[in-house]
């Protein structure tokens, strides 16, 4: 299936990737090219695999409800781009421009 600029723009927005015009055009071509090779899958009849297990037979292992957590050799302040009073800081969310409380 070929994708158009709107499709690529849409997924770029979902993935929070900023794309300029030039890059967009190129990506439309590349992704369409790659997706064309995926077409062969459409020919496979789902009944062929319907009765095969998904290979994930085990059960999720569980840990006891106790610590300690995995230790850290250095705290977030050593790698965080911006922190204050222990909080990570980011530019204020567009939906909270007036700074009201709420998540």
């Amino acid at each position: 299936m070929a994708v158009g600029p709107e499709d690529v723009m849409h997924v770029a927005q979902l993935a929070r990737l900023g794309l300029d015009e030039h890059r967009l055009e190129r990506l439309v071509r590349e992704l369409s090219g790659i997706l064309a090779h995926m077409e062969v899958l459409a020919a496979v009849d789902p009944n062929e695999y319907a009765n095969l297990d998904d290979g994930r037979l085990g059960s999720a292992p569980m840990r006891p409800d106790s610590g300690p957590p995995l230790p850290m050799a250095a705290g977030p302040e050593t790698f965080a781009p911006e922190m204050s009073d222990g909080f990570f800081l980011v530019p204020r969310l567009e939906t909270h421009e007036d700074g009201e409380e709420g998540a």
Partner: peptide, 28 residues
């Protein structure tokens, strides 16, 4: 300019072309 632009600028400049392609493909 704002959080949204921070995400987009960080990720588009932080990831190279192949990683970008695969993220887009995977998201799609």
């Amino acid at each position: 300019d704002g959080l949204r632009r921070m995400y987009e600028a960080t990720r588009s400049q932080g990831f190279g072309p192949e990683v970008t392609r695969r993220i887009l493909l995977g998201t799609y």
